[in-house]
Computed example of a mutant assay.
Amino acid sequence: MEILMSVLIGLLFACAVYLMLSKSLLRIIIGTSLLSHGAHLLLLTMAGVKRGTVPLLGENAESYTDPIPQALILTAIVISFGVTAFFLVLAFRTYQELKTDNVDEMRGTENND
């Protein structure tokens, strides 16, 4: 299972880097979102895919699942959702003002390619 997750993480990182290197602001935002999801999966995979029962005091089980990595990743997902929402609002407002989505045109450098 860890091998499959590692391949998926690599694929997410590759797609995120490809999208973040483009000139479109919306693609850059989607790329950062994919990068954060890849980082979340990386942290979850590094913690280990374990099966066990809930760590309660009255339970007598052979193995327990550690809830700390899952709680940290859930917090990171909420934070990345808020950052993505802020980026989208910022991009929308930028598009309203400048009437462009191209980062080079926003910067003021005219590229005639």
Rank of each mutant, 00 (worst) to 15 (best):
N102F: 03
L43E: 08
L25A: 14
A39F: 07
S33K: 08
G58D: 13
L4Y: 05
F87D: 02
L41V: 00
F13D: 12
Y64M: 12
L41D: 03
T75C: 15
L4N: 04
A76M: 15
I28K: 11
L4D: 04
A47W: 01
R27A: 08
A47L: 05
P55C: 01
F92I: 12
A61N: 01
T109F: 03
S24F: 06
L25R: 13
Q96P: 00
I28M: 15
A16N: 01
Y95H: 09
S63P: 00
L21F: 14
I79W: 01
L43I: 11
L21K: 07
L12A: 11
P69W: 11
A14H: 03
Y64I: 10
Q70R: 07
G52S: 12
D104L: 10
E110F: 00
L26W: 05
L42G: 07
T65F: 12
L42K: 02
L56A: 09
L72H: 04
H40P: 00
E110R: 00
S63K: 10
R51E: 13
F92V: 11
S63Q: 07
F13M: 15
R93D: 12
A71W: 06
H40R: 02
L56V: 07
V7A: 14
R51C: 05
A14V: 14
M1N: 09
D113V: 03
S24N: 15
E2N: 09
L26V: 01
F13I: 12
R27T: 05
L98D: 04
V103T: 10
D66I: 08
L43M: 10
I29L: 06
E110T: 00
M20P: 03
A71I: 14
A14Q: 06
I3G: 00
Q96L: 08
I9L: 06
Y95Q: 09
V89Q: 07
K99L: 09
S22F: 03
S63M: 10
G10D: 10
A76Y: 13
G38C: 06
T84K: 10
I68Y: 08
V54L: 15
I30K: 02
N111F: 03
L26K: 08
T100Q: 02
F92G: 13
T65G: 06
R27K: 13
P67T: 04
V49N: 08
F86K: 05
I3D: 14
V7W: 10
A76P: 08
S24H: 14
I73K: 02
V83C: 10
S22D: 10
A85I: 01
T45Q: 04
E110I: 01
V17C: 11
L41M: 09
G10M: 07
T65L: 12
L88K: 01
L35K: 13
A61K: 00
T109K: 05
L88D: 02
F87N: 02
F86D: 04
L25T: 14
M1V: 04
I68M: 15
G52L: 05
S22E: 12
I9H: 06
F87G: 00
S33R: 07
A39Q: 02
L72Y: 06
G48W: 02
F87A: 06
S33P: 00
V49P: 03
A61E: 08
H37D: 11
Q70P: 04
I29W: 02
Y64E: 15
G82N: 04
R107C: 01
L34I: 09
I68G: 05
I30V: 11
L41P: 02
A85L: 14
G82L: 15
E110H: 01
D101W: 03
L43N: 11
S63Y: 09
